[in-house]
Amino acid sequence: MNKSSILLIVAAVYGLTAVALGAMGQHAFGLVPGTRESLLFQHAYTYQLIHALLLIWVASQFDQGFWVRSAAYALILGVLMFCGGLYLLVFAGKTAFSWVTPVGGSLIILSWLNLVIHGFKRLKKKP
């Protein structure tokens, strides 16, 4: 199995779990609309779903070089840490693992920056 196929699977799992968690958050978890927990939860699954879609695109471009590969790895870990950290905050409160949320957010930002750099590199190569 090649790495782009693995990325596609991870993206699909992120998308699947984001949609499932979004539905469960609305119907099964007892989150009260408008509360801090409800807003954090909504933020987590929205970011997860958006970045699952980005990861699908990144998987299709994986062989384009270092910056895309770096974006893919930062995105996988960033979504896991950022969204997972928010889910943990909603359901367990502040824990010893709360530090993962801002680190994950930074990794997501880094993945977007890597794609910006990749875009500029491609622009320089085109006549």
Rank of each mutant, 00 (worst) to 15 (best):
M1D: 03
M1G: 11
K3V: 08
S4I: 08
S4A: 12
S5F: 14
I9S: 09
A12H: 07
Y14G: 06
Y14W: 13
G15L: 05
A18V: 11
A20K: 05
L21W: 04
G22N: 04
A23N: 07
A23H: 04
G25V: 09
G25H: 02
Q26L: 10
Q26I: 02
H27Q: 10
H27A: 06
H27F: 07
A28F: 11
F29V: 05
G30C: 08
L31T: 12
L31D: 09
P33W: 09
G34C: 09
T35C: 03
T35E: 00
T35D: 02
R36W: 07
R36A: 12
R36G: 05
R36V: 12
E37M: 01
E37F: 00
E37L: 00
S38A: 15
L39V: 15
L40M: 13
Q42M: 11
H43F: 10
Y45D: 12
Y47D: 02
Y47G: 09
Q48E: 11
L49Q: 10
L49S: 09
L49W: 06
I50H: 10
A52W: 11
A52I: 07
A52P: 05
A52L: 06
A52K: 08
A52E: 07
A52T: 07
L54H: 12
L55Q: 10
I56R: 04
W57Q: 10
V58E: 06
V58H: 11
V58N: 11
S60W: 14
S60K: 14
S60M: 14
D63I: 09
D63V: 10
Q64M: 11
G65S: 05
W67K: 05
W67E: 09
V68G: 01
R69H: 10
A71V: 13
A72D: 00
A72E: 02
Y73E: 01
Y73V: 15
A74I: 06
I76T: 10
G78L: 05
V79E: 05
V79R: 12
C83N: 07
C83Y: 01
C83D: 03
G84E: 01
G85R: 02
G85F: 02
G85Q: 03
Y87D: 01
Y87T: 03
L88C: 10
L89G: 00
V90S: 06
V90K: 09
F91I: 01
F91R: 00
A92C: 09
A92E: 03
G93W: 02
A96Q: 12
A96R: 13
F97C: 03
S98H: 02
S98C: 00
W99M: 05
W99S: 05
V100G: 01
P102R: 00
P102N: 03
V103K: 03
V103M: 08
G104M: 00
G105W: 04
G105L: 08
L107F: 12
L107S: 03
L107W: 08
I108C: 08
I108E: 06
L110I: 15
S111Q: 04
W112C: 04
W112V: 07
L113A: 12
N114G: 13
N114K: 09
N114C: 15
N114Y: 14
N114T: 08
L115N: 04
H118T: 10
H118I: 12
F120V: 13
R122Y: 02
R122W: 01
L123I: 10
K125Q: 15
K125F: 09
K126I: 14
P127S: 14
